[in-house]
């Protein structure tokens, strides 16, 4: 169980509370500046909330020492840009080995096997990628490596900040499906941060809509998207491309945006 609560001086976040349970996915949607990335930053401790707290399994985030390391192993992040989040000088093997060795999660003679197992988990062929460098991989493969690295420390929670928005459209679903599979198989709690309502709806159990640092709507994914209550959510929905509704309501009404 996972609680976040906080308010910031710049009102980056204002009285935000939610609970993320293992095995569940929360979609955090909003525009840039809505505060959704601030929440991610608080979770990975790049920012400290001015008031409020984050509880993991009922306990606040430890400040130092072994407990903090364990917190960091339990909560991992997948970033938006798979080009920037991997170090171009190191091999794929190195990227995944590091958390294993640092966390003492695998004995020396088991590291190689564990790296391969993780690569297989993200549907990569280990022999094809393990000794390559990030630039030799496609964007989708890189993002899979980033996910494998996040999984290495056996986390219980995954924060995915726009994990597919920089990938080519035809491979986005593949990566999202992978995340969904892993979430189901490993019982991960996933916080999916995005501005894309459509993927948020299909990928999340529950959706939280943020506007200017406040939660304006929260509920089961389909309810929030298909029957939004808050005006802001409705505005977001109306602005999102929706060919289905478009062709249903305005058949023949072509000749430009309305």
């Amino acid at each position: 169980m996972y609680n976040v609560r906080g308010s910031g001086q710049m009102k980056a976040l204002d009285d935000v509370s939610f609970t993320l349970r293992s095995g569940r996915t929360i979609g955090l949607v909003g525009q840039s500046g809505s505060g959704k990335s601030t929440i991610a930053k608080i979770l990975i401790q790049l920012e400290t909330p001015t008031s409020g707290e984050v509880l993991l399994d009922g306990a606040p985030i430890p400040r130092r020492g072994k407990a903090l390391r364990s917190y960091r192993q339990q909560l991992r992040m997948v970033f938006q840009d798979p080009f920037a989040s991997l170090n171009p000088y190191h091999s794929i093997r190195y990227h995944i080995e590091r958390p294993l060795r640092l966390g003492g999660l695998a004995a020396n003679d088991q590291v190689d096997g564990e790296v391969r197992r993780l690569l297989e988990r993200v549907r990569l062929v280990p022999d094809a990628v393990i000794d390559r460098r990030p630039h030799e991989l496609s964007g989708g493969q890189r993002q899979r490596v980033a996910i494998a690295r996040a999984l290495a420390s056996r986390p219980t929670l995954l924060v995915a900040d726009e994990p597919v928005s920089m990938l080519d459209v035809s491979i986005r679903l593949g990566v999202l499906n992978l995340l969904a599979d892993l979430q189901r198989e490993e019982g991960l709690g996933v916080l999916y941060i995005t501005h894309d309502l459509a993927t948020a709806r299909h990928f999340s159990d529950e959706i939280i809509v943020l506007n200017q640092g406040r939660i304006v709507e929260q509920g089961p994914a389909d309810d929030v998207i298909l029957d939004p209550q808050n005006p802001y959510t409705r505005e977001l929905r109306a602005a999102s491309p929706d060919p289905e509704r478009h062709f249903a309501s305005a058949a023949g009404n072509l000749g430009g945006a309305q």
Partner: peptide, 16 residues
């Protein structure tokens, strides 16, 4: 960290 950093500062820009 792309996509994360600028968001604090950009608060209240585009949308409004």
């Amino acid at each position: 960290m792309t996509g994360v950093q600028p968001q604090l500062a950009e608060l209240d820009t585009d949308a409004l």
